[in-house]
């Protein structure tokens, strides 16, 4: 084997860089609890309206006894329902969403509130500290779901916690 000494040094350096990334990411996941939606929970998408949690009357923002929020939404071609939700800033959010039809992608830009919405499964995102800034933001569908995909979006308004 002929490996140039400089090249050997570089291989070690490159490996050290890669391992550093791995360590930092695992630290963020384990110590800070930063995980993407991974709840592995099934549901029958064809009869969401018959389920307790995703029945039409139960969609929207619910205040929990401990002061945190539970937000329940449904994705269906071409919108996220309810189409406009309002939540206070700096309040922990437990967000749950399911689809009645095909795949969708849910994303609030600049935040960790994003998930794929997959037929047959519930997606759950936990925002431990809630939204940090106030204002109205769009919730875009970002996975192709059919010819009206670009029409699919809703709004979230984040209000000052005091008000």
């Amino acid at each position: 084997m002929h490996v140039d000494p400089l090249e050997k040094t570089w291989v070690w350096l490159a490996s050290a860089i890669a391992v550093t990334f791995v360590v930092v990411l695992i630290w963020a996941a384990v110590a800070r609890g930063i995980h993407p939606p991974s709840n592995v929970e099934t549901i029958d998408s064809a009869s969401l309206h018959l389920s307790e949690e995703f029945a039409e009357d139960n969609l929207g923002v619910h205040r929990q006894p401990d002061g945190s929020l539970k937000v329940v939404m449904v994705a269906t071609r071409y919108g996220f329902y309810p189409q406009h939700i309002e939540v206070p800033a700096n309040t922990p959010i437990n967000f749950r969403i399911a689809t009645t039809d095909v795949l969708h992608g849910f994303h609030v830009e600049g935040t960790n509130l994003a998930t794929m919405v997959i037929p047959g499964f519930i997606s759950e995102v936990n925002l431990a500290e809630g939204f940090k800034t106030t204002g109205t933001k769009p919730m875009f569908c970002n996975e192709y779901c059919g010819l009206g995909h670009h029409y699919m979006w809703s709004r979230v308004t984040i209000t000052d916690k005091a008000s």
């Binding site: 990411l25 996941a29 970002n142």
Partner: peptide, 11 residues
């Protein structure tokens, strides 16, 4: 990145 992907995913 496991924790950064969320910001750019599907954008």
């Amino acid at each position: 990145s496991y924790s950064l992907n969320v910001v750019v995913h599907n954008t």
